[in-house]
Amino acid sequence: MQIFVKTLTGKTITLEVEPSDTIENVKAKIQDKEGIPPDQQRLIFAGKQLEDGRTLSDYNIQKESTSHLVLR
């Protein structure tokens, strides 16, 4: 499924993911596309910070959901 990640600069990154993917996996995909190390990434969805060990389905992130990327 596709999800979108919006950066603070207003850029939207499109990612191909599975509901069973962990947040860690998603951060690795963002690193592949954008070159941002996962330890600098914070992903926010529905006002919550997403934890590495959880999956997209844990957070009820469905296709075409948009989460926000904040850099630390």
Score class of each variant (00 low, 15 high):
Glu18Pro: 03
Lys48Trp: 06
Val70Trp: 10
Leu50Gln: 01
Arg54His: 11
Ile36Arg: 02
Arg72Ala: 14
Leu50Met: 12
Asp32Gln: 14
Val5Lys: 00
Val5Thr: 01
Arg54Asn: 10
Lys63Glu: 12
Thr66Ser: 10
Asp32Met: 14
Ala28Cys: 10
Asp21Lys: 01
Arg72His: 14
Leu56Met: 04
Asp32Gly: 09
Gly47Ile: 01
Ile44Trp: 15
Thr66Ile: 12
Pro37Asn: 07
Arg72Gln: 15
Leu71Ser: 07
Glu34Asp: 05
Thr55His: 05
Lys33Leu: 14
Thr14Asp: 04
Gln41Cys: 07
Thr55Leu: 08
Ser65Ile: 08
Glu24Tyr: 14
Gln41Trp: 05
Lys33Asp: 03
Glu51Asp: 09
Gly53Glu: 10
Lys29Val: 04
Phe4Thr: 09
Leu71Tyr: 06
Met1Val: 05
Asn60Met: 07
Ile3Leu: 08
Ile13Lys: 00
Gln31Tyr: 15
Asp52Met: 05
Asp52Glu: 09
Val70Ile: 14
Leu50Ser: 01
Thr55Asn: 05
Lys11Gly: 08
Phe4Glu: 06
Gly10His: 05
Phe45His: 12
Ile13His: 03
Glu16Trp: 14
Asp58Trp: 10
Phe45Arg: 03
Ala28Ile: 14
Val17Asp: 00
Gln31Val: 04
Lys63Met: 11
Arg42Gln: 13
Thr7Pro: 03
Leu15Phe: 04
Pro38Met: 15
Lys33Gly: 04
Ala46Gln: 15
Ala46Met: 14
Asp52Tyr: 04
Lys27His: 02
Ile36Lys: 02
Asn60Val: 04
Asp39Leu: 09
Phe4Ile: 11
Leu15Ser: 00
Leu8Gly: 12
Lys27Glu: 00
Glu16Ile: 13
Glu51Arg: 08
Ala46Cys: 13
Ser67Gln: 11
Lys6Trp: 07
Asn60Pro: 03
Gly35Asp: 05
Ile44Gly: 03
Val5Cys: 03
Pro19Trp: 08
Gln2Ala: 07
Glu51Gln: 10
Val5Phe: 06
Asp39Gly: 11
Val26Tyr: 01
Glu24His: 10
Glu64Gly: 15
Ile61Tyr: 03
Leu8Thr: 13
Gly35Pro: 02
Thr66Tyr: 08
Gly35Lys: 06
Ile13Cys: 02
Ile23Tyr: 01
Arg42His: 12
Asp39Thr: 10
Leu56Thr: 01
Thr66Phe: 09
Lys29Ala: 05
Lys6Asp: 09
Phe45Pro: 00
Thr12Gln: 07
Glu18Gln: 13
Glu18Arg: 14
Val70Phe: 12
Thr9Ile: 07
Thr7Asp: 06
Ile23Val: 09
His68Ser: 08
Thr9Trp: 15
Ile13Leu: 09
Lys27Ile: 03
Ala28Thr: 10
Gln2His: 12
Val26Gln: 00
Ile30Gly: 00
Arg42Tyr: 12
Ile30His: 00
Ile13Phe: 09
Met1His: 05
Thr55Met: 09
Ile30Trp: 00
His68Trp: 14
Lys33Ala: 11
Ile13Asp: 00
Gln62Leu: 12
Leu50Ile: 04
